[in-house]
Design a protein around this nucleic acid. Structure first.
Lengths: 121, 121
DNA sequence: AGGGATGAATTACACATGTAATCGACAGGG
DNA sequence: CCCTGTCGATTACATGTGTAATTCATCCCT
C-alpha cells in the first residue's frame, strides 16, 4: 500500500468519514486550520487517486471520490511501521514508553486492562 | 524539536547506540540493507547537525558526532504524534487496534498487564 | 617533498510534498 | 447563444529527502 503523506491523510480522513463526496465537498469538510484552498484539495485528491488509495466515479461533469482502502488497514500499517522502527516491533515497549511519560490516565489503564482480559477469553 | 526523516533516523539510531563516532564509524554501523555510501551518510550527518539534533566536536581534522537529543524524547514525540493523528489521542484505541489485528501475543498481553498493574501501585 | 588517502563542505539531481494558479472544456442562466 | 462560473487537468514552485559526486584542504607514507 502506498504511503500517504501527512496532508493527504487529512483528506482521507474526510472521505473515511463520509463518502462519496465531490472535491468541493471534501474541501468544505477539511479542518479549518489547514487553511487550504480548493485548488490545494484538488491536488491532494489527484495525488491520492494516483496512489490508488482513492477511487472516483463520474457524476456528470464532476467526480465523486471515495476511499479505495480501509481506514483500519492503513492505520494498522502505519502503527506497525512505527512500532517496528521505534520499539523493535515490541508492543510492550511502546506501552512502557507511554507509561513512563504519563500518557496513560487511570481510565486508559482500566480500559486497556478490560480489553486485554477480553482478549484472553 | 525538528522532525527527523526516515533515513536520517537510521543514523540517529547508530549514534544513540554508541557515541561519539566519526562519520566513517557511523557509516560502518548503519544497517547493511540501506546500502549507503559514505558520502550519503555524511550528507545525513550534516542535515542532522543543521536540524540541531546532533552536535559535533572537532577531533583533529575530523568531527566526532553525538546525539543532541535523547532517544526517549524523540520516540515519545513521534508516538504521541501518531496516536493523536490516527487514534484521536486515545491510547486504548491504539491497543484495541493492535488486538484486533492479532498483533498481541499472549506474552505481550501478560507483559502489558504486568506493566499496568505496577503503574497502579 | 610529492602523491595518494581522507575529511568536511559544496553542489547535484530526482522524486515527494505543501501549496497553489492557470487552462481549456462545458453547463446553466439570462 | 453567449457569459460566467465550475470542473478536472496541467503546470508551477519552494522545501524536504534520498542518494550521491565533486572539490578543496590536509595528513601520512614513501
Amino acid at each position: 500500500m502506498e504511503r500517504i503523506a501527512e496532508g493527504e491523510y487529512a483528506v482521507m480522513e474526510v472521505l473515511w468519514d463520509e463518502a462519496p463526496l465531490t472535491a468541493a465537498d471534501v474541501a468544505a469538510r477539511v479542518p479549518e486550520d489547514r487553511g487550504w484552498s480548493l485548488a490545494t484539495v484538488k491536488t491532494m485528491l489527484s495525488r491520492l487517486l494516483a496512489k490508488g488509495v482513492l477511487s472516483h466515479e463520474e457524476d456528470g461533469r464532476r467526480y465523486l471520490y471515495r476511499p479505495a482502502i480501509r481506514r483500519e488497514d492503513y492505520v494498522a500499517e502505519e502503527s506497525g511501521r512505527l512500532i517496528d522502527r521505534m520499539f523493535g516491533g515490541r508492543v510492550p515497549a511502546l506501552v512502557a514508553q507511554l507509561a513512563a511519560r504519563d500518557k496513560l490516565t487511570p481510565a486508559d489503564i482500566a480500559e486497556i486492562e478490560k480489553l486485554l482480559k477480553e482478549l484472553k477469553s
